[in-house]
Design a protein around this nucleic acid. Structure first.
Length: 775
DNA sequence: CAGTGAGCGAGCTTCCGCTTGACTT
């Protein structure tokens, strides 16, 4: 018999709490939700006021049966799930699934895991908040209705196995629209003029001063006119202004900001960050990693205060309470912080150490003083022009939190100004050394990274800390979005320089536009997005979630009935589903590119069963008509921007480029990339070196000979006893192959020394190990 | 391992949010 059973959501939390509570308390975890809507069908009885059909999923059956057993033995059950919509629903589902009775069941909540907080919570127990539960049910059911009614439309009208949902479809929309913005972006060039001046101080010491004209100059002609004027101009300092400013540290990490900083500073993907954070959490090194709160508990603040005072002195201490900006935040947890702020470093692997270091610094810095900066702006008048040169300098008068932590940004840094200015005074005369006009270009908005997409979603109030990483991976899995690098290109720019009264013009090249790990929409993502935006613009609206969240809040505060809300939504949503299913044309992204010059037949691109393709000729049912010809688009080719020429080129494969050893050489592109087929064998073309559309016979023969040479060295040893057993040289070193299965040759073993018996022994050992996994 | 794309129809796919392991290479 146990006196008290406490149920929390996570096992790591259960372990820590158990330490605080005495022997009379046993703490167990539910591992999140224990019931969900049935997955076999819609899981909602529309006709009976949207009655949900809840089941216990297979992977939760074990947890539930264990909890049931413990409940029977317990005098009192304490439901200690999180204090938000989902947490309240978990508590309620536990009541239902475990048949808890009101007399000995209590609902408690606590925001921090300290003895005080927990004993307080136990003193202030309450019952289940059914309004909050209803708000969760409304959220759950709306998401199910949207997801399970929209997805099948896509299967029918676009392609099987696609998906749509309140969160993922908007995430895809952001990426699609950003890409179109980039495709349609027109670069505008302009000029920026900067100068290096010489200036003398009272003691005739000479200093250099860099200054810039703030305004953009539109044309080269205007630049030349200005430079001509500068030849005879005098430059005078007319104003020196000093302005103090301050920088404030960023608040402690939430899931979203941790993902962003880990991406920028450490190059982690969103899911990498979460996996590493999970390990740190389970090891008791950080607090919970799925949170939207920037709040630190009093205990944490106290510990941070000690660290700052000890390490940097009280001058650097500034205890602050941060407030969340995000409206959607439910703040069931603390911010992400070190469990023990006094610990600056931890043991663990490299990634864990780095992420911990980031969290530690951010947490400590958040309680440190502002950095004080003095910014000086020097205005330089030009005697014969209205433009003004400005020189700016920045000095740090007090470093404050910057001693420890500098937040990075997605934006490019302003490389001008900064640093210390030479001693100057008003009316000083400046002698120009060189005045340079550089041609610049406006730049398109950046593509999203995983982390910047999370940031945007959070701003829109879409998704939750626990779903950011899964959402990002879903939209990639469905093929809507690809994370990839893109090579830059060379761009020419004009440089005009005025030195010693001579104007010199140069045209230089710069390499721009290289991007890494950015999110690009794929063809199917664009087609699905356009379809959904066309027929379900309300759900694809960026404000849809924010609007329904307000209604969920009203349900939570008891002002609204959840079935009424869902009913109103469904009555306008479902008819659209029906009409779209019956009336809309299949949407394959068809685009007519022009006519094939050889046959005069139309050339189109569309989405086929196996991806984007080009087609010459129409589909006809008549037997006498020729079947259309098909060719897949190549990776990275965009249905929206592909030209007729590019599409026609796809049909030039397979290409017969001649003969070698009396057999044809056929070049084509297969599932694994471009290849040469010769004597019914396949030879891959080298990535980035060979082009299947232009490769010639000499190079093809070279590739074939190279491969044959390699294959010759492939067999290290074969055996008379068993022709199916061989030792081969592979990509990762020697290996044994036997009946189509491969086995690694143990390290530090000379493969030539292995006998037939040795090989059989190795194979048997591996097979044995597979059958009986240790532990 | 080295393209496929007609049309028919069976049977499959799918959401968001809360949580961990269980898997494979």
């Amino acid at each position: 018999m146990i006196d008290n059973l406490v149920i929390v959501e996570s096992p790591a939390k259960a372990r820590t709490i158990e330490k605080f509570l005495g022997k009379e308390f046993q703490v167990k975890s539910s591992m999140g939700h224990i019931r969900d809507l049935s997955k076999k069908d819609l899981g909602i009885d529309i006709k009976s006021r949207y009655k949900p059909k809840y089941i216990i999923p297979d992977d939760k059956k074990k947890v539930v049966s264990e909890l049931k057993k413990l409940v029977k033995e317990a005098k009192t059950v304490w439901l200690a799930s999180d204090e938000d919509r989902e947490g309240e629903a978990i508590a309620w589902h536990l009541c239902e699934a475990l048949n808890l009775n009101k007399e000995n069941t209590r609902r408690i909540v606590f925001h921090e895991i300290t003895r005080n907080a927990i004993t307080n919570a136990i003193k202030n127990h309450r019952g289940i908040d059914y309004n909050l539960v209803d708000a969760q049910q409304a959220r759950r059911i709306l998401d199910r209705l949207v997801g399970f009614e929209l997805s099948p439309i896509l299967w029918k009208k676009v392609k099987p196995a696609l998906s749509a949902g309140r969160v993922q479809s908007v995430a895809v929309r952001l990426i699609v629209e950003r890409e179109r913005e980039i495709l349609n972006f027109k670069y505008i060039s302009y000029f920026k003029i900067s100068a290096i001046f010489k200036v003398k101080d009272k003691n005739n010491r000479i200093y250099e001063l860099k200054a810039e004209i703030q305004d953009k100059i539109e044309s080269e002609k205007e630049v030349l006119e200005l430079l001509e004027k500068f030849k005879i101009a005098t430059f005078t300092i007319t104003d020196i202004t000093k302005k103090p400013s301050r920088k404030t540290p960023s608040p402690p990490f939430t899931t979203s900001t941790l993902q962003q900083e880990a991406s920028r500073k450490l190059g982690f993907s969103v899911s990498q960050t979460m996996t590493i954070a999970q390990r740190l959490y389970e090891a008791g090194k950080i607090t919970y990693m799925r949170t939207d709160s920037v709040n630190l508990s009093d205990t944490a603040l106290h510990a941070v205060k000690e660290v700052v005072s000890r390490e940097y002195g009280d001058k650097y201490l500034n205890i602050r309470k941060y407030k969340t900006k995000s409206k959607s935040a439910q703040e069931a947890h603390e911010a992400i912080r070190p469990a023990y702020p006094a610990k600056q470093t931890i043991s663990g692997n490299n990634a864990e150490k780095k992420l911990y270091d980031l969290i530690w610094k951010r947490t400590i810095a958040s309680q440190m003083s502002d950095a004080l900066i003095e910014k000086t702006t020097v205005t330089i008048d030009i005697s014969n022009a209205n433009e003004k040169f400005l020189a700016t300098g920045e000095i740090l008068t007090f470093d404050g939190f910057l001693k420890l932590y500098i937040e990075s940004t997605d934006d490019e840094v302003d490389e001008n100004s900064k640093g210390l200015l030479p001693p100057l005074s008003v009316n000083d005369l400046l002698i120009p050394v060189t005045i340079t006009a550089t041609e610049k270009f406006t730049s398109h908005p950046p593509r999203y990274t995983e982390a910047s997409l999370v940031k945007k979603l959070e701003e829109l109030g879409i998704g939750r800390p626990s779903t950011y990483a899964p959402t990002i991976s879903t939209i990639q899995q469905r093929g809507y979005v690809i994370k990839q690098d893109k090579a830059g290109y060379e761009r020419k720019y004009i440089l005009l320089e005025l030195t010693d009264n001579n104007i010199n013009k140069e045209v230089n090249t710069e390499y721009v536009g290289t991007v890494k790990a950015k999110l690009f929409p794929d063809n199917i993502g664009m087609i699905v997005n356009d379809f959904l935006v066309r027929y379900f613009s309300d759900i694809l609206n960026y404000n849809f979630t924010a609007t329904i969240e307000e209604e969920f809040d009203e349900i939570a505060s008891g002002k609204k009935n959840w079935t009424d809300m869902i009913d109103r939504f469904y009555k306008q949503f479902h008819p659209k589903v029906v009409t779209t299913l019956t009336k809309s044309e299949p949407s394959k992204g068809d685009r007519h590119l022009g006519e094939d010059p050889e046959t005069g037949k139309p050339v189109i691109v569309k989405m086929g069963r196996y991806g984007a393709m080009a087609q010459i000729g129409e589909n006809t049912s008549k037997d006498n008509e020729e079947k259309p010809r098909f060719a897949s688009l190549r990776k990275g080719q965009n249905m929206e921007s592909i030209t007729l020429e590019e599409a026609l080129q796809l049909f030039s494969l397979p290409r017969n480029i001649g003969q070698f050893d009396g057999k044809d050489l056929i070049v084509s592109i297969g599932r694994f990339g471009p290849y040469i087929k010769h004597d019914s064998k396949f030879y891959s073309l080298k990535k980035g070196v060979d082009d299947p559309y232009s490769i010639d016979i000499e190079r093809a023969v070279e590739i074939i000979k190279e491969k044959q040479e390699k294959d010759k060295n492939k067999i290290i040893k074969s055996f008379k006893e068993e022709p199916e057993l061989m030792i081969l040289n592979g990509r990762w070193g020697p290996y044994i192959t036997y009946k189509k299965k491969n086995f690694r040759v143990p390290k530090k073993t000379d493969p030539n020394s292995l006998s037939y018996e040795d090989c059989i022994k190795i194979i048997k050992e591996v097979e044995e190990r597979k059958k009986s996994p240790e532990k």
